[in-house]
Design a protein around this nucleic acid. Sequence first.
DNA 1: TTTAAACTATGATTTAGATCACATGTCAAT
DNA 2: ATTGACATGTGATCTAAATCATAGTTTAAA
Lengths: 241, 241
Amino acid sequence: MPDGSKETRTPSAQDKKSLLLAHTFIESLDDEDVDRLAQHARLMTYGSGETIFRKGDPGISMLLVIKGCVRISTITSEAKEIVLNLIQAGEVVGEIALLDGKERSADATAIQFTEVLVLERRDFLPILERNPRAAIRMLEVLCDRLRRTSEQVEDLILTNAVRFARVLVRLAEQFGNEVDVGTQIDLRLSQSELGKITGTTRETLNRQLAEWREQGIIALESGRIVIRNMRALKRIGDGDR
Amino acid sequence: MPDGSKETRTPSAQDKKSLLLAHTFIESLDDEDVDRLAQHARLMTYGSGETIFRKGDPGISMLLVIKGCVRISTITSEAKEIVLNLIQAGEVVGEIALLDGKERSADATAIQFTEVLVLERRDFLPILERNPRAAIRMLEVLCDRLRRTSEQVEDLILTNAVRFARVLVRLAEQFGNEVDVGTQIDLRLSQSELGKITGTTRETLNRQLAEWREQGIIALESGRIVIRNMRALKRIGDGDR
DNA sequence: TTTAAACTATGATTTAGATCACATGTCAAT
DNA sequence: ATTGACATGTGATCTAAATCATAGTTTAAA
């Protein structure tokens, strides 16, 4: 696991502005604000496995993910790691601590080569205070997160098969890519990684995947899961065995 | 379980205004907006056990809890109920669906005699759009929720004893009342109810509580839990056995 | 003031899934 | 090509907690 070796490029404010504008999040801002942000924003890149921030860090910034994917996770007192969220290009990371000024509530790690634009609290908050549309956009983001996380709570009291099915369906919605045989999840996830998403051990997960593979419900295509029978998977996820 | 029999009083706009002003949430609004809300807000009351809304309902309103306590919960496909949140006087309920315009993501039930002020989407959203401070206040509420819910996700992959301890500590923070023997949780919760909060069966919970009672860590005082040794409970919750 | 309904307590049994153990497979680096 | 670091695949065993069963207790209603 490489660590710390974040590199920073030094692109022009113009470059940064166009990156900002490409980000869905930014559409709620007017041109001046975008300019202001572009001036102060830093562009950072992280290799796969690199830590972006850690639980407990002071949270004075928010990241717009330009490229790649960020895993939000935390390690319990019993030394189990659980993934709270996977955040892809076009979404934001670290907004909670930025907004409430408290510590980071979880760890953030790049799981691919990832580029982010870092917005500082002092640059961003004034914009929210001036621009209600931006604040409302932030509210939408948080509502979305909350719905997802509540769903995860529900998932965690379900039996494994049902939970796995629901997680796969959700991953397919988030990272899915339609191919001829079905929906491919465009993420290279090891089984232990997937285990951390579902909150189970690698072994149990492996057995379940094997079964579904035999039944033709899923398949593996160069290290990526392809869902071949989405309907069946959804049925399992609904508990209709 | 009584149902549906909501009664509505018809207080004056003045009455409603003073209720609004008493609510911590409202401090971010200016006087005109408070007046406007007071005119349209409805005061509703619910008996213990009454349903306020159900998962799947259209979410066109938000409730300010004036008095009492509301349980936010959901029933899984496997027919298990889990409590996502307990919301007491001074807090808001149902803000997510109001903000994102989607369906209610969970059921809301009064667990005591409860009074709420109902704010409609069409009255409230324009205020957010005009008043960034109110929007930022909403952001804080959501951040808070998100931190709580993420903690619950963490809790759910812990072993029961650790999880119970953490839940009790959290309930003590939220509903605690310092008495001579310790901190009393000011809620009458049956063990099955507590089970739904911790995501376990009544039986397992019962055994754990019995053990802690013998050890003098907790006690029962007229149906309410008193934490007599908070330090011990916190240590257990941290996994330091 | 008894009768029902809900809640608490605890033992016995079962079970889902974790843990352990080890074989096999893959792939990048030397 | 060989080594080593990881990832996958599967049996065997163990265990935490669910489920089942049943008795006692408190609360509220008739």
